[in-house]
Design a binder for these strands. Structure first.
Length: 681
DNA sequence: CTAGGGTTAG
């Protein structure tokens, strides 16, 4: 037993580094001995309490101080408050702060800790009362106190107040500056963040990693890769520590700006990578449409022994959504259920995955299981119903959402209006558009106008839609004109349609689908020279666009089909299946719509080209490889053309199959010769 | 004994 030795000089023990790492148990024995031997002085008790706090026994620390003369020792209390903070319980930190005995006079450290706790809790009013006490106690010009006050405001979007504090600070250090930079970034003002950094440099303050991370994020948000790269160079030249966080923000900066190869190189050069670094890289691929690569990385991450965090899982789910990989999506969902609490972010990503993989039922089931729903989760589920052609369900959900007191935002209405439009619920669409503007005071954006115009025009109310355009403050965009034009074409309002087509051409669209619509309209009015002119534009933009690709998942394996790709082992069988279907379709009245072939070819060759459209190949493959009655889910990267849309209706009848096609815009549910979406051009 | 930092959903 060596404790008595300590008793010779407990003072030395408590100030030595041994105490810093002493266990709470050792400290307790020492404590007891101090009391028994009546040698517990004020200073000793205070140091002991601080040592308890460092060792993590906060209850012991507090009870050591309470009811002794040492309870006036602010240093000991600070140690306790700091320990609560480190442990991630700001509420406990504040509780201790508020219950300080009157004899313990808070100092700069105490106020700083309390303000930081308020910032973490988002307790602005509590923070302001701490501020008042700090200022009264004479810490008005204290850099630590002011910087944490600044952070409180900046972190919660009150940049105006943050600037006020900042402006009257007599002294600023790099923490002050970096707080301002990060504040502007999270307030969505990246240019002001960069401006702050410039001011800092003019003031002669050198940036450290933390400031630079803020600047990198600002470059990411401002889409300024050039400056981002120069910051990167600056870091390297000045030999700044490339820690995980710095490197990760660089990876993110390059990836979000489309420089995936550079992002990869930075990622590859990292000495230590943690879950967040992997997440940044995976999301970079997923958001740049390289979903297969994102999923490969996701597997690599697990293989290298890093447990995916929620960021990586969300990105993996996003990648599964993009390519419609239901089996993998399900397994990621299963992984989450086993290891995580299902929060709203993960829930939203999973619901979106099920939705985009064609499984409305799974999305609904998951939604019903989540009881604590936030705005984005509701929006995702409403969008899901809409995408699957369930306008009425979307409306019911929307009303349910309102009943819970959740306030809809612009995205909610975009999803709702789009759902109503796809289901042809005209009266409801008009009603809720008006309600959005008048009751919820949301200024309609382009997407809202597109939905409403589409809804009106499709339903034959072309004039009403046209009036809506004139009532708009801004000039109509291509998307809005297109919605109106397709209504004109479907409802044979050719005269109005022609002037709209002219308007669209003036805006120089390069979208082949848009041009096809315009060309179809000119064909309907027999303006053949204009048809030729538009078809030339289509040829130019058609050669630039990516090839159409469709995929189908059969028993957990994905099969992708491109028009040009001859390499599929079952290619011949597939092509002859399509030909057989084609024959039957024609007997039932199908007429190939060769206007959807954009190359100058003989009519016969054009018809053949139509047979090679990727969605037809994928469907034929699906029919060959699944049993009768199995539902087929096709994921297509571009929009389904009018010809395929007609053809799949017939195929669903002939093969007696439910066929779901997800194109770049939405879902088409084909069954018994009809599609859930209304007229299609 | 004290303040500031990265990824992820509609």
């Amino acid at each position: 037993m060596h404790l008595p030795v300590f008793l010779d000089d407990p003072r030395r023990l408590l100030s030595s580094s041994a105490a810093a790492s002493a266990s709470a148990r050792t400290l307790a024995r020492l404590h007891a001995l101090l009391i028994v031997s009546s040698s517990a002085t004020h200073t000793l008790i205070s140091s002991l309490a601080a040592a308890y706090a460092r060792a993590g026994d906060l209850a012991a620390a507090e009870s050591t101080l309470t009811a002794t003369a040492a309870s006036s020792s602010i240093a000991a209390w600070n140690a306790i408050i700091a320990a609560h903070s480190r442990r991630g319980s700001p509420a406990s930190a504040l509780r201790v702060f508020r219950a300080l005995p009157p004899a313990a006079r808070p100092d700069s450290t105490t106020f700083t800790l309390a303000l930081s706790a308020c910032a973490r809790l988002g307790d602005l009013r509590g923070g302001e009362s701490v501020r008042d006490r700090a200022f009264d106690a004479g810490y008005k010009d204290d850099v630590f106190v002011c910087s944490s006050l600044l952070h409180l405001y900046a972190r919660w979007g009150a940049m105006g107040d943050a600037v006020k504090v900042f402006d009257r600070m007599p002294r600023r250090d790099r923490v002050t500056w970096s707080t301002m930079v990060a504040g502007f970034v999270s307030a969505g003002q990246p240019l002001d963040a960069i401006q702050m950094y410039r001011r800092m440099r003019e003031d002669g303050v050198k940036g450290d990693e933390v400031v630079m991370i803020g600047v990198i994020q600002a470059c990411t948000a401002a889409r300024n890769v050039r400056m981002g790269a120069s910051v990167h160079g600056h870091l390297l030249r000045h030999g700044m520590r490339m820690d995980v966080v710095t490197a990760t923000s660089l990876v993110d900066m390059y990836a979000k700006n489309g420089l995936l190869d550079v992002a990869c190189r930075v990622f590859g050069l990292m000495v230590h990578r943690n879950d967040v670094s992997w997440s940044a890289m995976i999301s970079g691929f997923a958001q740049n449409g390289q979903s297969d690569e994102a999923l490969r990385l996701f597997r690599n991450m697990q293989a290298s022994g890093i447990q995916p965090d929620s960021g990586a899982l969300v990105s993996a789910l996003l990648a599964c959504s993009n390519i419609g990989f239901l089996k993998l999506g399900r397994s990621v969902h299963g992984f989450i259920v086993r290891r995580f609490d299902f929060n709203c972010i993960l829930g939203t990503a999973a619901i979106d995955m099920y939705s985009k993989c064609g499984s409305l039922a799974s999305a609904q089931m998951l939604f019903n299981m989540i009881s604590d729903r936030d705005l984005i989760l509701w929006n995702a589920m409403i969008a899901c119903c809409g995408a699957h052609g369930r306008g009425q369900d979307a409306l019911t959900l929307f009303q349910e959402m309102n009943e819970t007191g959740m306030r809809p935002d612009h995205a909610t209405f975009a999803s709702l209006l789009s759902a109503l439009s796809h289901s042809g619920l005209v009266e409801e669409g008009k009603l809720w558009f008006g309600c959005m503007v008048n009751h919820f005071k949301i200024t309609p954006a382009e997407k809202h106008y597109v939905c409403l115009v589409d809804l009106l025009a499709r339903s034959g109310l072309v004039e009403e839609a046209s009036d809506l355009l004139t009532s708009m403050k801004a000039e109509p965009t291509v998307a809005i004109w297109v919605a109106l034009l397709s209504g004109c074409l479907n409802n044979k309002k050719l005269e109005l349609g022609e002037s709209i087509a002219d308007n669209i051409l003036e805006l120089q669209p390069d979208d082949v689908g848009v041009l096809a619509l315009v060309s179809n309209l000119y064909a309907a009015t027999k303006k053949w020279d204009k048809v030729r002119q538009v078809r030339k534009l289509m040829k130019d933009s058609g050669s630039k666009k990516m090839p159409g690709c469709s995929s189908i998942e059969i028993r957990g394996t994905r099969h992708a089909f491109l028009m040009e790709d001859q390499s599929h082992p079952q290619r011949e069988e597939i092509v002859s299946k399509v030909a057989k279907l084609d024959l039957e379709m024609r007997k039932m009245g199908y007429i190939p719509r060769t206007e959807f072939v954009y190359h100058d070819l003989e009519e016969e060759v054009k018809e053949q080209q139509l047979s090679y459209h990727s969605e037809k190949l994928a469907i034929a493959f699906g029919l060959l490889n699944t049993g009768p009655g199995t539902r087929l889910v096709i994921i297509k990267n571009l929009r389904v053309c009018g010809d395929c849309h007609d053809a799949i209706k017939y195929i669903s009848k002939i093969a007696d199959r439910e066929i779901v096609v997800r194109d770049a815009k939405r879902f088409h549910h084909f069954k018994d010769g009809v599609c859930s979406c209304r007229d299609y051009w």
